[in-house]
Each structure stands twice: as C-alpha cells, then as structure tokens.
Design a protein around this nucleic acid. Structure first.
Length: 454
RNA sequence: GCCGGGGUCGCCUAGCCUGGUUAGGGCGGAGGGUUGCUAACCCUCUGGCCGAAAGGCCGCGUGGGUUCAAAUCCCACCCCCGGCGCCA
C-alpha cells in the first residue's frame, strides 16, 4: 500500500507531524481524510446501484415479451441514478486525488528541521581546502564544529567565470547573444575535460554493477508528472511547442519512467542504473544567482545514479549512493562537505536528501555538486512501479533513489578553482588522465592559460 | 506521413466475425498433498478497488460513443509488427 494512504487511514497524526516538520499547514491532512471517507462511502453506494443494474441486465437476456419490456424500463431508470452517482463520485475522486497527490513525501526522522539552506546540517568534511587568507573567517564559519585541515593561500584564486577568459576556452557572451544568458560555448581542453569527467563517472559506476543508460531526452507529460512536483514544472522544464514533449531536466526522470506501469520480480531488485544525458533547465526561480560563468546554466551533461529497490533496503542504498558520489569526488581530489538537507529545503519528492558541496576557493564557499535523494514510494506510486513479493505474491511499491555522480559544468568549475595555480594554470586531476590519453589533442597534465600557450 | 496486421490478468495464448451464464487454457510464482530423497503427478490460490467479513464493483492499450448489456460494434488517440514514402 502507498505509504501516504496507509498513514492517512491508520495514523493521520504522522502525516500532520510531517506537514508541521515541513512548515506546511496540516489542514490538508484533515481534508484528505474527509475526502477519502466520503469517497469510500460514495463508492459503496454506487457499487450497490451497479449490482442491481447488472442483475436486471442479466435477467433481460433470458426474458421474452412483456416481462422483458418491464425489466428494460427498470434498467433504464436505474441507469439514470447510476449516472448521477457516477458524476458525484468522479468529482469527489478528482478532489481526493488532487489532495492526496499534493501531500509531500514523509520525511525521515534523521532530517533536520529548518527553513532554508542556512539550516542544512553539515555531517562530514573531506579533503584539505585551499583557503585564501581573507576568506579564513568564512571558512571557519562554514566548518564550525568540525576540525577540518586546510591550507592557507596568500593569492586570490580566479573565479570559474573569469577562468574561462584566462584560459580562453569559453565564451558565455557570444552564447548569450545567440541563445540567451546561462548558455555557454566551451572549447578544446574544456570539451575534453567534460567528456573525461562523464567517462570517469560512467566507468566507475559500471564497475559498481550499474547498468549504464542513455535515455530519451524528452518525455511526455504523463510520465513527467510522475517523477516531479507540478510546481517544479514551470520553473524548471522546457516544453516543445505544439507537442506533448518536455526536455528532461535530468536523466533521473526518464530512468524513473523506464519501469512505469510495471510489476517487477522481487529477485530482480535492486535495479541499478547509471544514466548519462544532457540536462535542460529553465532556472526560472534563480534570477540574479550565479549569472556569470557555467555554474548555473540551462544545459549541461550529467551522469546520474538511479536505484529501484525494496522498501526495506532503501535507506542502505541512500548511504551507498552517497558513498559512490564521495568516492568519485575523492578520486578527483576536490575538497567537499556533505550536508543533510533540512525540511524546508528538501522539496516535496524526497524523504531525505544529502548534498555534496565542493569547496570553491574563489568564492570562499561550499557549493552544491551532488544531490542524493531517497524518494521512497513517492515517485513509484505516481508511476505505478511495483514489485511482487516472492513469499506472499503481494504487490508493493518499490522505492526509488537518485544521486548525481558528476554534473559536467559544475565539476569543471570546481576543478578550475581548486586546481588552479597562481599563474592561472589548471592541473588536470590524475584520475581523468586515462580518459584523455586516447586523444592526442586532449590535455594530459595541465590546462595552460591563454597567454602561456603558443 | 500513407496502407495493412496487431495490443487480452506477471509472461504466452483462446475468445472478437455472429454483443448476454464465471475472460478459458498454458507458463512462471505461492501454499498444500503424495513420496526414503529428488523428479514427476494431484489439489488450491495467483489484477485493482470498497468491505470486519459475507460479498460486491471495476478491469481485455487509452479515452469517448451505441446498447438494458461491450474484450466483442463505432470514433479518436497512443504503441508494436510488415510494406511504401521521407530521412542523419
């Protein structure tokens, strides 16, 4: 049974607690309960009328003459009642569905309560960040409560946006003219770097037992509604004109939809997928934020982890996906922290979410690189993805989880800032070199600034 | 895009022409029986919803329509297969 409906009928207090935790009004729970009760009552009444009609209808097949005419009239009058009742039921059903689907996922007990990203709770730090002397205070503030080793530097690293200029390998101005702001051209070494990052992540995940997948880059509305909140639609998703098609914001979405309307076998779980795709995002709610460079853009590449598993295993998988992401970022050598996203910043789909945030020396801040969510049965209910219990034959909703492995442009910004030398040279992370070896023109050790190249 | 064939319970398949008892069968799965063990065999169960249960309702790609009654007839859409056209 879908967890939200289960709690609504068996423990509505839990749902009210959830609404309070998330800072929403709990009135909707009462409304849902009321509608569900009314729906069940009305359904019973309708079924009763239908039963009578079915009985008469069956008799008619056996009758002749006057008796038949009489029953025909009876059936017809019954039909009117049924139609009326159906109309009422449909209305209630639509309201009930709307209310039920608007209930956010039930947060895990370990999720901190809070209003916005300020209240996210760091749980782990890794690596030895390079901290510019004048950012020391900021750094201490962000690492409060943890003892994090760091290296003080006396020169100010150049921000990722300006690095595109220094290297001469990106043009966001021309892109803005031809496509709009938040688009970019990148060239040569940065293109190789983008590809190498993706291959690195895919290679790693394939070895971890993930099936690698290139999904459709567009989805119909129906599957899209199953994987995301309607409110996100307007802010994030591009629509194709005059077609029922939407550009994907992440491969999470087509992968979640891959098993739509299916009943999986318990023995086939978990299903592990590593998706690679471009991602298209409107970023409508982000006016003024990160307007320069390639940190927040309308289009980028991403390798994504996605898991369908049994409900009792999903919390283990949540930790495992985070661990995979951490290994990838440790491999790159980028210092990061992991934060436990608070209730106010969680979004309605996830029950719990970790972000992996890379230290950005030029900004003096940790910035999001990876987002790792357990969506429990919130997506699978909407997409009707179930599995059959081997022992009992019962059908239950699977749990779905997703986590970034590497998003190319963000990873590039982290590399440009963290592996920058005082002269503007960028050292290529060692783990990427094997993916660059293949190409004679690709960078191997370093990416040189424009003025140092011939 | 056009023409033809098709979509049935987890999978395969019958039913559709000619509307009307319970959508039948096989496979796979669960439980039980028989058995020295295994195999084989036999029996029961194996879509969703409402209901404490008895039971009832719904369900044959999706949505409409005709009819007292639709898997079955009609319309639209989606998808799959074959042919033609177009195409990186």
């Amino acid at each position: 049974m879908w967890s939200i409906l289960y709690y609504l009928r068996n423990d509505p207090e839990k749902l009210k607690w959830n609404m309070r935790m998330r800072g929403f009004s709990e009135a909707i729970v009462g409304k849902a309960l009321e509608l569900d009760t009314l729906w069940r009552k009305t359904l019973t009444e309708l079924n009763d009328l239908r039963r009578k009609h079915n009985q008469i209808s069956r008799e008619i097949g056996r009758l002749k003459g006057e008796a038949r005419e009489k029953k025909l009239a009876e059936a017809k009058s019954l039909l009117k009642l049924i139609e009326e009742k159906e109309k009422i039921l449909r209305k209630i059903e639509a309201e009930r569905e709307e209310v039920l689907l608007s209930i956010p996922n039930i947060v895990h007990e370990s999720v901190p309560q809070g209003e916005d990203e300020e209240d996210n709770v760091p749980v782990k730090f890794w690596g030895k960040p390079k901290v510019w002397r004048r950012y020391l205070d900021r750094f201490k503030e962000q690492t409060k409560g943890f003892s994090v080793e760091y290296e003080v530097i006396d020169w100010k690293p150049i921000g990722h946006a300006d690095m595109l200029e220094v290297l001469g390998l990106g043009d966001t101005f021309k892109a803005a003219q031809v496509a709009g702001s938040r688009f970019f051209y990148i060239f040569d070494d940065l293109v190789w770097l983008d590809l190498a990052l993706l291959l690195y992540a895919l290679d790693f995940l394939a070895q971890q037992g993930f099936k690698i997948v290139m999904p459709p880059y567009m989805l119909r509305r129906k599957p899209y509604e199953g994987v995301t909140a309607l409110s996100d639609f307007e802010d994030a998703i591009y629509k194709i004109e005059d077609e029922d098609l939407y550009l994907i914001a992440t491969s999470e979405h087509p992968i979640a939809a891959l098993h739509m309307n299916e009943i999986l076998e318990e023995k086939d779980l978990p299903l592990l997928y590593a998706g690679i795709s471009p991602c298209f995002r409107k970023e409508a709610g982000a006016h003024g934020k990160d307007t320069k460079g390639i940190f927040r853009v309308h289009q980028f590449h991403k390798v994504e982890q996605f898991v369908f598993c049994r409900p009792e295993e999903s919390w283990e998988w949540h930790e495992k996906l985070l661990e995979n992401a951490e290994k990838l970022w440790q491999g790159l050598g980028v210092p990061y922290r992991v934060v436990n996203i608070c209730t106010g910043d969680l979004g309605v789909v996830a029950a719990k979410k970790y972000d992996l945030e890379a230290w950005m020396p030029a900004q003096g801040k940790y910035r999001e690189m990876v987002s790792c969510s357990n969506c429990t049965d919130w997506q699978s209910y909407r997409l009707k993805i179930r599995f059959r219990r081997r022992k009992t034959g019962e059908r239950e909703y699977v749990h779905t989880l997703n986590s970034t492995a590497i998003a190319s442009t963000r990873a590039i910004t982290a590399i440009l800032e963290n592996f920058q030398e005082p002269d503007g040279t960028v050292v290529v992370p060692k783990v990427l070199r094997r993916y660059l070896e293949l190409f004679p023109k690709a960078p191997k050790e370093v990416i040189l600034p424009k003025k140092k190249r011939k």
